[in-house]
Amino acid sequence: MRYFIEFAYKGTNYHGWQLQPNAVTVQELLNKAFSVILKEDINVSGAGRTDAGVHASQMYAHFDIENELAIDKIVYKVNALLPNDIVVYDLLKTTDDAHTRFDATSRSYEYRIFLGRNPFEIETTWQHTNKKLNIDKMNAAAEILLTFTNFKCFSRSNSDVTTYNCNVTKAVWVKTDKLLVFHISANRFLRNMVRAIVGTLLDVGTGKTSLEAFEQIIKSENRCNAGPSAPPQGLFLTEIIYPKTIFIHE
């Protein structure tokens, strides 16, 4: 039987999602907790990977097990073993071939910028104290993203992918008091894509890059032409959507 795990984590204390030999990761701790509770070797497969310091308010991973699980009991026991910055919300029974990475139809991220200084937001926002941002121009540039599909210019160099095409369906900045949040959704994302987009959009907001230049950056398909990557702590994976047909409701 295959189960999807719905969970969240604050990534500050972890070297990203994916297992690494000499660093603590979220995948490693989930594997250990489920292996202890289920009394067998569990290796979870994630919907994607986040870098060190990046957070997820909704993430999924899956694993296989022979026997049907008492979901509420397992969730309670696993959370008792996990650190407080990783929380399992639910286990969802799926079809045997369902895959958290390949079956996802949409993913959404938020990038959070705090306009000022706040010691309680240091680990979850990028704090800006001395730059005035033209948010209208940043949103005009964000709209340009919806007219393109090839985002090689925002991808980490030497990424092992077969295509740089992504279907971006939403890209908008929303300001509430001192919090400026970039919302972006797409069918898939390239490595470092959101942070590179945010860094380049901030160049638009400060006047360093014009709207015309932003469009030319995308057309160039060259990472060297885009802006610097925004730091990891402001980035949140917020939603992953799957076809309802993969879930088994009893």
Rank of each mutant, 00 (worst) to 15 (best):
A140W: 14
R117C: 04
T124I: 15
L115N: 14
S155M: 14
R107K: 13
G116V: 06
A104Y: 01
K152S: 11
P119S: 03
D177Y: 09
T100N: 00
T129D: 08
V161P: 10
S106D: 02
T94E: 01
F120H: 13
T162L: 09
Q127C: 05
N165A: 07
T125R: 08
S155P: 02
N158D: 14
A104D: 12
V174T: 12
D160V: 01
T176S: 15
V161I: 13
C166S: 14
T149D: 15
A98I: 06
H99R: 00
S157E: 15
Q127Y: 04
E121N: 11
R101P: 11
Y111C: 03
V174F: 10
P119R: 05
D177L: 11
R107L: 03
N130K: 12
A140L: 15
F102V: 06
K132C: 13
D96K: 10
N139L: 09
V174Q: 10
H128R: 10
K93N: 11
T125Q: 10
T129K: 07
I113G: 01
K93I: 11
R107E: 10
L180H: 08
Y109H: 10
V174S: 08
T94P: 08
K170Y: 11
N150M: 07
D177C: 06
E143V: 01
I144P: 13
Y111H: 07
N139H: 11
L179W: 07
K152F: 06
V172F: 09
Q127I: 02
R101H: 14
K175T: 09
D160R: 14
D103I: 00
S157D: 14
E123L: 13
T162H: 01
T124D: 02
Q127H: 07
W126A: 03
T95W: 00
L146H: 11
T125P: 08
R107Y: 04
I122D: 05
L92K: 13
T149P: 00
I122S: 08
N118F: 04
H128T: 14
F114M: 07
H128Y: 12
A98F: 01
T124K: 09
Y164T: 00
T176G: 03
T169R: 05
T163Y: 04
T100I: 06
L92F: 05
L179R: 12
T149H: 12
D103C: 01
E121I: 01
I144V: 15
K152L: 03
F120R: 13
A98Y: 01
T124M: 02
L146G: 05
L179H: 09
T169D: 11
N118K: 13
D96V: 06
S108W: 02
N139Y: 12
Q127E: 13
T149Y: 04
T125S: 10
N158G: 02
C166Q: 07
E123G: 04
Y164H: 14
R156E: 11
T162C: 00
M138K: 04
L180D: 02
G116F: 06
W126I: 05
T125V: 10
H99F: 06
T176F: 09
T129L: 10
T95L: 10
N167R: 09
D103G: 00
V168E: 00
K132D: 15
T169L: 05
F151M: 04
N139E: 13
D103F: 02
T163L: 00
D96E: 14
Y111G: 03
T95D: 03
T95P: 00
T162W: 00
T129Q: 09
C153Q: 04
A171Q: 03
T129R: 08
T129W: 05
S106C: 08
A141P: 10
R112W: 13
A140K: 15
A142L: 06
N118W: 09
F102L: 11
